[in-house]
Simulated scan of single mutants.
Amino acid sequence: MKNVTIADVAKQAEVSKSTVSQYLNKRYDYMGEKTKQRIQEAVEKLGYQPNIVARSLKQKATKTIGVIVANILHNFTTKVVRAIEDVCHASDFHTIICNADDDPVKEKYYIEMLRAKQVDGLIIFPTGDNRDLYQKMLDSSYPVVFMDREVEGMDIPSIMLHNEKAAELAVEHFLEKGYRRIGMMTTSLINHTTPRVERVEGYKKALRRSGIPIYKDYIISGEPQSLQTELEELLHLERPPEGILAGNDLVLIEILKYAKQKGVRVPEDLAVIGIDDVSFASFYTPAITTVAQPTFKMGKAGAELLLNIVQKQEETTKQASLRFEPTLMIRDSV
């Protein structure tokens, strides 16, 4: 079967090709209802599908943005991506989602692949290890926004949480409840990932303000698969922590899995607070106290900023990073 063209639709609807083009591009404010109905009926009868590639070449825009996430398994990431997609859909933009697994090599591949596909801009949860590529995008004024993280020395706008404050809220709640031996567990700090580093710093600041010593043995970082072993060692110290702050949702899951397997009662044996308000936190037994991020607001802000840059309403280098406020969700695990 031959491809159905705009000319075929125009002939079927008994209108000009330019009228069909205006209809397909939703520029029909002054178009009569009967004309619109005839074109729509012709499109449906002929099974016309727009040639998106040809349209992109003509308009010099693909109406598509790429989103490169660090780890799609994070609850935070899933919600942020949903908000990004909602904003893009409402603006008639498509999204392509890529998962870099915190791997700079995969991130580099996806950046180059998406740019080769001529996406109009990128939202990146950056690994931080592709500075040359980030700089090339800056130098060429290519639209790019960082999400959840920033890269030192890169003048690219970032959408982030007030991470130090998130950890401080958690530690202060532990202290209000009478806990003094407080540990913190997070995923690997090797790559100096912004939220992880800042949350550890916020944990330390809150303890210092209260005059409580900081014990290096109480601060654990590592890959998710090693965290239960690390927790086992932590809880068998001569003076183990009474409470643990989980630096993100993946860490919280590992702590709760360990507690269930080992019969550790929460909060009687070990109090727990997690950063990231995971979906199960409110109905887990006991309900888990968390520090929530405004994930949908953050995703919406990132998408709107990128689309403004793409549509030349803003300039990338003139945009400041945005920080969002965390919220303590008090439940029963402390």
Rank of each mutant, 00 (worst) to 15 (best):
residue 4 V to N: 07
residue 7 A to F: 14
residue 9 V to D: 04
residue 20 V to A: 03
residue 34 K to A: 12
residue 37 Q to T: 13
residue 40 Q to W: 05
residue 42 A to E: 06
residue 47 G to W: 03
residue 50 P to R: 13
residue 52 I to V: 10
residue 64 T to S: 12
residue 71 N to Y: 09
residue 82 R to N: 14
residue 92 D to N: 15
residue 93 F to A: 02
residue 101 D to F: 02
residue 103 D to C: 07
residue 104 P to S: 08
residue 107 E to D: 09
residue 108 K to F: 00
residue 115 R to S: 05
residue 115 R to K: 15
residue 119 V to P: 01
residue 124 I to Q: 02
residue 132 D to H: 12
residue 133 L to E: 13
residue 133 L to W: 01
residue 137 M to H: 04
residue 138 L to R: 03
residue 140 S to Y: 04
residue 144 V to I: 15
residue 146 F to H: 07
residue 155 D to G: 02
residue 164 E to V: 08
residue 165 K to A: 14
residue 166 A to D: 06
residue 166 A to V: 01
residue 172 E to H: 14
residue 173 H to D: 12
residue 173 H to T: 07
residue 180 R to V: 11
residue 180 R to A: 08
residue 183 G to D: 07
residue 191 N to D: 14
residue 214 I to E: 04
residue 229 T to P: 00
residue 234 L to N: 01
residue 239 R to Q: 15
residue 241 P to F: 05
residue 244 I to S: 03
residue 244 I to N: 05
residue 248 N to C: 08
residue 248 N to P: 12
residue 255 I to S: 03
residue 263 G to I: 04
residue 269 D to H: 07
residue 270 L to N: 06
residue 278 V to Y: 15
residue 280 F to R: 04
residue 281 A to K: 04
residue 297 K to L: 09
residue 301 A to L: 02
residue 320 A to G: 06
residue 321 S to L: 05
residue 330 I to E: 14
residue 331 R to Y: 13
residue 333 S to R: 07
residue 334 V to A: 13
